[in-house]
Amino acid sequence: MVEEILTPELVKKLMAFEGKIRGMDLKIDGEFILKKEGKENFEKLKEKLIKIGIPNEYQYDKIKSLDFYPGGLKAISLLAIKQVLGYDDEKIQEIGMIASKSSLIVRIFIKYFLPISDFFFKKGPRIWDKYWTVGKLTPLDLNEKEKSALVRIEGLDLHPVYCTYLKGYFATLTKMVTGGSNVICQETKCSFRGDKVHEFLLKWQH
């Protein structure tokens, strides 16, 4: 089982993660907590990050949306939230859901949302590249009739908490792209469960 407690060793390990992430995907965590849990809890979260040695320039309010930052920060941020505010997986997914709703990148790519297949196969993978300097998103299958899709992520073994986050992210993105409802996202393969890749199965209704 992968460790979830932010020990100095885990922080060090995560900070050493190769690959960078776009600032906006880090800022959203702070914005979500500030809005949802209030300033006091947000400050507690910040204190925690400082306590575990996260440099000042990596604090939520110092992060620039379009700059790239150490990818491990994302896992540290989510784990700190879990630890400080007692968030469970469902709530971590909720952060992912809100992240896709408020993402500038998603808004920029909105023009590619039609037709769905275009977005899914041609433009969708590019969104990944806008977020991460490592890893690769591959659309494996889209069945509009059955209302299902399968996406693969490879080369990004950050932390299982990020997989949980991505489930929320992909679910909302699918909802926005398809106009569907009751979207369910399942991680059918996970490198932290012994698979080589991560695969996410998306199902929705109309």
Binding site: I98, K101, K175
Partner: peptide, 26 residues
């Protein structure tokens, strides 16, 4: 979106619709 999904909304829309941004987007 062309599919009729709200992809973005401003605070004034939030106020008039009584939905929070997070509720109404998507």
């Amino acid at each position: 979106s062309p599919l009729g999904v709200i992809l973005e909304a401003n605070p004034a829309f939030e106020k008039i619709s009584k939905f929070s941004i997070n509720e109404i987007v998507g």
